[in-house]
């Protein structure tokens, strides 16, 4: 093998040989890449999307509504006109399921939005300020935490009275506690990180440090908790409606439908089966998505 002498002339190269070869990936892209690879999570997401579409747009394609009685068509078994059948007042169960799913989803997302707000605020302040304030705030959390959720919810519902608005308030009042704990834990570990110290030496105030540095870095954990709290809230609402403390007729939720259907199990099982199946499907889908999100955001998996 011969090499020309020319090859040994100096290589002209710029000193700044500091390109970045790899494509830019943000946290979201990274998480999405992992999430996509998880078949259960993707399945859950698909089912969830279908249920949301079903709940949002389904009623526009239905000739029935959820509250008008039709005594000519009571207790029909599933058929071409009423694919899910009708209940004892002749209302189309399919349409009612759509409206019920709407309420359930609304409660799921809405109550989590409420507890996110309270939880982030409370946990953020408690974690960042620390010392006696943290001690005090955490004791309050401990007290709320020591009361069984169910007891607490039922007591509050009885006090406030049933109804959609009160369900929001009560679920929000209960569920912010675990959220606040998670946020506080995240903030506690993050606040001693050097980038937070750096922001402090630059003169950043508490508000800026919380909003720009601490919360954005806790967002993964917050999303995971929220994703698992949504199904819990939906389930709680279904339970409340089931025992008669939830939404009031004629408004309908999946829980109240199941409650109505329960009376007729021997003769008309479908009136329980369909709403119950919807609840189960929602739960499963949310839980799979939640687990998928946890894996996708898990810092231990990050490289």
């Amino acid at each position: 093998m011969s090499i020309s002498v020319e090859s040994f002339s100096p290589l002209q190269q710029g000193l700044k040989a500091e390109g970045i070869n790899r494509p830019s990936t943000t946290l979201w892209q990274d998480a999405w890449r992992r999430f996509r690879k998880n078949p259960l999570a993707m399945g859950g997401l698909t089912v969830l999307a279908l249920i949301i579409l079903f709940a949002l747009f389904g009623p526009f394609f239905s000739q029935f509504d959820y509250k008008t009685n039709n005594l000519m068509a009571t207790n029909q078994y599933p058929n071409w006109i009423h694919p899910f059948g009708t209940d004892e007042l002749g209302r189309d169960i399919l349409t009612r399921s759509m409206f019920g799913a709407r309420i359930s989803l609304l409660i799921g997302f809405g109550s989590v939005a409420i507890n996110l707000t309270i939880g982030i605020f409370y946990g953020g302040i408690s974690g960042y300020k620390g010392s006696w304030l943290d001690n005090f705030m955490q004791r309050i959390v401990d007290i709320i935490f020591s009361i069984p959720d169910l007891l607490y919810v039922i007591l509050l519902m009885v006090t406030f009275g049933p109804g959609l608005r009160n369900i929001f308030i009560v679920l929000g009042l209960v569920n912010w506690v675990p959220m606040a704990r998670i946020v506080r834990g995240q903030i506690l570990t993050l606040r001693e990180q050097e980038f937070v110290l750096a922001a402090r030496t630059l003169g950043a105030d508490t508000k800026r440090i919380l909003i720009k540095h601490l919360l954005p870095n806790s967002i993964g954990q917050i999303i995971i908790v929220a994703a698992l709290q949504i199904p819990a809230a939906i389930f709680m609402e279904a339970f409340l409606s089931f025992i008669g403390l939830g939404v009031q007729a004629p408004m309908v939720s999946l829980g109240s439908m199941a409650s109505d259907g329960r009376m007729n199990i021997p003769s008309y099982p479908y009136s329980l089966i369909f709403p119950a199946a919807m609840i189960a499907l929602l739960m499963l889908a949310f839980n799979f998505v939640g687990d998928g999100l946890r894996d996708a955001f898990d810092p231990k998996m990050r490289k």
Partner: peptide, 11 residues
């Protein structure tokens, strides 16, 4: 700061 990985906000 010391740790070039911890001293910059990753977000």
């Amino acid at each position: 700061f010391q740790d070039p990985y911890a001293s910059l906000n990753p977000r």
